[in-house]
Design a binder for these strands. Sequence first.
RNA 1: GCCGCCAUAGCUCAGUUGGUUAGAGCACCAGAUUGUGGAUCUGGGGGUCCCCCGUUCAAGUCGGGGUGGCGGUACCA
Length: 496
Amino acid sequence: MSDQKKSKIEARSPRGLADRDAAELAATGRMLDVIRSVYELYGFEALETPAIEYTDALGKFLPDQDRPNEGVFSFQDDDEQWLSLRYDLTAPLARYVAQNFDRLPKPFRSYRFGNVYRNEKPGPGRFRQFMQFDADTVGAASPAADAEICMMAADTLEKLGIPRGDYVIKINSRKVLDGVMKAIGLEGDENAGRRLTVLRAIDKMDRLGPEGVRQLLGPGRKDDSGDFTKGAGLADDAVATILSFTLGGQYKDGEPRFGLFELLGRSNVGAEGAEELLEIEDLVRDAGFGPERIRIDPSIVRGLEYYTGPVFEADLTFETKDEKGHPVRFGSVGGGGRYDGLIGRFRSDNTPATGFSIGVSRLYAALKLVGSPVVSAAARLGPVVVLALDRDHIADYQRMVAALRNAGVSAELYLGSSGMKAQMKYADKRNSPAVVIQGSDERAKGEVQIKDLIEGARASAAISTNEEWKSARPAQFSAPESELVEHIKALLARQG
RNA sequence: GCCGCCAUAGCUCAGUUGGUUAGAGCACCAGAUUGUGGAUCUGGGGGUCCCCCGUUCAAGUCGGGGUGGCGGUACCA
């Protein structure tokens, strides 16, 4: 006995992977429909690529020697080539565009959604499989393409039920960041490591605040758990320059508040990036998007690898409480930017591209918290359940089910082996609108009992004793079997 | 990866200085009601007290190691 028990497999899902039930699938489906409709309104067309790609096509993350890369699920094909599950939707798009370059219209504007996979430590709202929804314009170098992406992101969030003011699309530029680095003397290959450290420090501004970032730019920082993070080791004046840039660089419309150009004047790339940023800002302002929706924020860094120009981040700015009453800030629910070098990895000539990616799973959780109707609509009704009371007359019940189905009404015969009470409970759990009851009494009279479960549940609130409950038989009526379909249809219409 | 906290029924948790057969609420199943969801009452099923080793007459409880979870931090294309 105990041996048998021990040999049973424990039913469990792998870490960071989750099942999704009917209610969540329906809500997610509505959410995807909204996003899709906005993207199509902006003129993007659908595309799907596989979940598996050749590892070298995904980026620079090749399995070194015999060890597949960390963070990426990888395995070898039977011809020994390395394959990987995609970890975003941008790298596969670059591969697709390069592979089909000659027949695609340029600029090529596409949207894609699907699951992506990252083999890293899961956490609250962080999974190893999650859904992204991307839109990209490939083959357009103009800042107008970047501006359009930002406006579309803002429109999408509002269409999903996030009020204006509860989100902001922040934009920055990798070129500007490079210019700032140059201004403090961090140029050349020998400083690549320190530049990375500086960027990571800036990226933590929202979480650690100016003082934490100051420590990370200088000698280093010891966190609450006692762990020490080595800093960039910059001199005090360099730290001050970066902090004043990221903090004080809150631009007024069209005009940086402090001497951005003065600072960046020392580098062409920085000035160029600033020009682009300000052009994007002009474009979105002209289109009616104010700074409460889209604004420049010099502390945005985003991914460190393939972005070459403007970068975007969609942040939720409101605070809510979780189930335990702790304040929760959602922060980033999407991001993107310009990646002019990615397609060039496959081709001799380069192709500019810009895009944006929504973290669907994370945004879904946020929409639940703000009570967006897109995800909080009432649960879908289940089928009308025809009870199986008399096992010798299954064919009769099946005929009723078929009649309902022919009339376009979702219906099913109870297929289990339990008694009547359990069948009622089953219908209740399925969220059925109604049950159809025919025992020997009804059959003798050629009738059926129809019970409205929604109305019945409402009526039960006023009934306290069991006797009352039994005798009242709330929301139940009998009808000739020949009129079953029309009565059910009328009942469904009443329920709305 | 690093630091800290935690692990008892499907869920939330009690469990005394180590001491008989490990409990509660909720959930689930059944009966009260020849044939009716809810409420109430009664009963029932369900446990490797995370795993292994050790200390002890005796371990859910103490010690060591492992695994898993949570929080922070690092990384995050």
